[in-house]
Amino acid sequence: MAEEREVNSASFYQFLTEKKLMASRCKKCQALYLPPHPICTKCHGSDMEWVEMKGNGKLAAFTAIAVGTTCTIEEGHDRNNPYVAGIVELDEGPKISGRISGLDARKPETIKVGTPLTAEFPEQEEGKGCYVAFKAQ
């Protein structure tokens, strides 16, 4: 049962592996946290519940990364094959950062803030579960 899981990042990743993007909501003041917070930073309440995000949102900020991290270099990205990362504003309100696919990283001038996106859950390397990324519709 989703609501019985402790509000921490281990549970958040467990949900991602079940292809669910889950936020935490303060039962006292209704503030929504993604990634989840065990403690409400608005009212300092610690009575939280899990809420599933539909996974729809729009691009709020982005960058095309030419010099990446070890894992993106291993994926084959380099100066000639950049990738897009950005911040996504979900329909429910929270913003979250992630990799964005379906946009042309070689032509960042064509990428528009506000582009509609949907969440996807690619697998990490073997046995490490899934992470959240976004795809342009």
Binding site: N8, S9, A10, P38
Partner: peptide, 24 residues
């Protein structure tokens, strides 16, 4: 299985509550 931030925030909130304080 908790992260360092999660572990510390639990201990911190207990210490704050025991002190009759609020995080602010």
């Amino acid at each position: 299985e908790k992260t360092n931030v999660e572990l510390f925030s639990e201990a911190a909130m207990d210490a704050i509550a025991e002190s009759n304080l609020e995080p602010k």
